[in-house]
Design a protein around this nucleic acid. Sequence first.
DNA 1: TATGAAAATTATAGAAC
DNA 2: GTTCTATAATTTTCATA
Lengths: 146, 146
Amino acid sequence: MDHIDRALLAKLQEDATQSYAGLGQAVGLSAGAAHERVRKLRERGVIRRTTVEVDPAVVGGGVLAFVMVDSTSWMGDTAEDFAALPEIVEAHIIAGSASVLVKVRTATTELLQDVLRRIYAIDGVSGTQATVVLETFFERPVSPQA
Amino acid sequence: MDHIDRALLAKLQEDATQSYAGLGQAVGLSAGAAHERVRKLRERGVIRRTTVEVDPAVVGGGVLAFVMVDSTSWMGDTAEDFAALPEIVEAHIIAGSASVLVKVRTATTELLQDVLRRIYAIDGVSGTQATVVLETFFERPVSPQA
DNA sequence: TATGAAAATTATAGAAC
DNA sequence: GTTCTATAATTTTCATA
């Protein structure tokens, strides 16, 4: 993981469809060398996968909310319970008064309410505190350049 | 945007490196038809970009935190101020007592503290309330299948 | 690790149905 | 939308330094 690898990661985050020839040129390497470095980054798990960014509003995720989930018991083994709700796009165990923080995307606020109801049904959950997003400034990948 | 388009989006989210032949086979289309549909999805902006998922811990983002930002004034035009901090990977205007919610990735908690200090320096910010993530259950893209 | 080139695969565009 | 065709471009492998 030198500065060239970080530059490759940054370029691929911008656009993963570009050719290895173009990638190599951008970082001062031949196409073959760029290919080999990217192959190793994938092999090592630094690059987890190549994916597409989909406009959430188009696929029924126009409403975004963050939900603090309060609980009365240890939530460390409830990952599958949260993962079972497809509207939940992130779930984290947090330090603080609440114990789980989830990010939810639904088409409407009515569906958000339904997700809250289903979160409430998870074992150990004693309450939810939802914060609705009015406007997203930006969402971007972690910067490898820093 | 029919069910085939949604299936294509789901498949591409899983792995955007697969061939159009394989994609088409997965959704019951010829390679040419799959290619044309994906081209239109990109053209319409449903697919915003093709990118790689990078392991945050490897590129200096091992510490994840959500920060509620309190303010004394209208924060609607502060997007650039938050975007100027590379450790901030998301920033949202929210409904509720705080006015901005940001997601931050840093290498250490010391660097998180430094980011909080720089957030505090943004015009109108009157306070921050950071919640550190102890464990991430999952982070996944919005499901086009729902 | 990098390079340069060969070989295999895929993308891309178009014609006919 | 499918199938077929054809070319360009790219991926992937490999010999070599």
